[in-house]
Design a protein around this nucleic acid. Structure first.
Lengths: 179, 179
DNA sequence: GAACACATGTAATTGGTTACATGATTCC
DNA sequence: GGAATCATGTAACCAATTACATGTGTTC
């Protein structure tokens, strides 16, 4: 089966929800996948165009009262197959995630300690803000979306974010102490 | 001050160690930064060329007995300043790290549970392998490099890797249970 | 001479962001 | 008329990988 890039699969996946247009897809990503996946318009529209060329989706022009016209995309059978095939593939390999703070800490070993401490404190602060953001979203879901069929999966991804972020915060604490 | 990309700063940083040539830089990265930063030759050589053009480094041809000739790079004062300036800057913002497993889990919500479990088990396995790799490197450092001035910093970065990976493993366990 | 480590580089391609450009519709 | 939201798209640019191309020196 022909291979596409992850952005293509992500958009195919989003088209299985009730998002139909480029604009709506962007909103969906910003609202639901934002903490582990983002895509810009500069990718969305060209990718949608390609989906049609590859016959993975069909386009339908739609005019809705009170709103500008838009193009609605629907997965074809082929599109559904391509998506399903991708969903079944396990990760090829764990990606190596660049970490600028670790890099600076490493090269800062001949700098002053204050400098390193400053970087770590700042990093910790940012991680804590992120953690709180996750908690806020989590509460929001628990309060208003508990019956939404996606709620369970949102909570899984938030839990992932919280655990990993929490571990990074703990590392900051420990490293600040040991420095 | 003019801005460069992270790859440029990383290479400036590596030039403060005793790595001097493109080949050596690549080896250093593969040996020491591999779990949170990697760069290919396709970036290294063009970047080194630019360093000289920008007067951040000077080149010296070096012939060493028993080895092919090579080019050795040395930071200029300007290069050191640019690096120092970068080292002092805190993170602009936390990067959003794409996570393919979370994405598949999310879109797999209308798939079978077995499918999701398979993905999670596989992910967990890969994370556990990574964790063991970290432990192996850690032991190696503790045993043979304890007096190396970089040892402390290597251990910091390994600790980071272990903590974050461990948190992800715990998440897998929990999610597998709750699915 | 073959295999392997050392060494440098470029070209094609992919993936992605940002800035730009345009326009409809609603509400104030 | 102006601001905000809805909506689609392209062009320029940046970052990065991969494949390709070449060559030296050592050891077996």
């Amino acid at each position: 089966m022909k291979k596409y890039n992850d952005t293509t699969y992500a958009i195919l996946g989003i088209l299985t929800t009730n998002c139909r247009s480029g604009y709506e897809i962007k909103q969906f990503i910003d609202n639901s996948l934002n903490h582990f996946w983002k895509i810009s318009y500069g990718q969305i529209y060209p990718t949608l165009k390609k989906l049609e060329q590859e016959e993975l989706a069909t386009i339908q022009a739609a005019s809705r009262e009170g709103k500008p016209d838009r193009k609605e995309y629907f997965l074809t059978e082929k599109g559904k197959e391509v998506l399903k095939d991708w969903l079944e593939q396990p990760l090829k390999q764990l990606p190596i995630e660049r970490n600028e703070v670790l890099l600076k800490l490493f090269f800062g070993r001949h700098q002053t300690e204050e400098q390193s401490l400053f970087l770590l404190e700042d990093y910790k602060q940012k991680l804590e803000n992120l953690y709180q953001t996750y908690e806020g979203i989590e509460e929001g879901i628990a309060r208003y979306n508990n019956n939404h069929s996606d709620a369970k999966y949102w909570l899984f991804t938030l839990d992932y974010g919280k655990r990993v972020t929490g571990a990074a915060i703990a590392w900051c604490d420990e490293t600040i102490k040991e420095l």
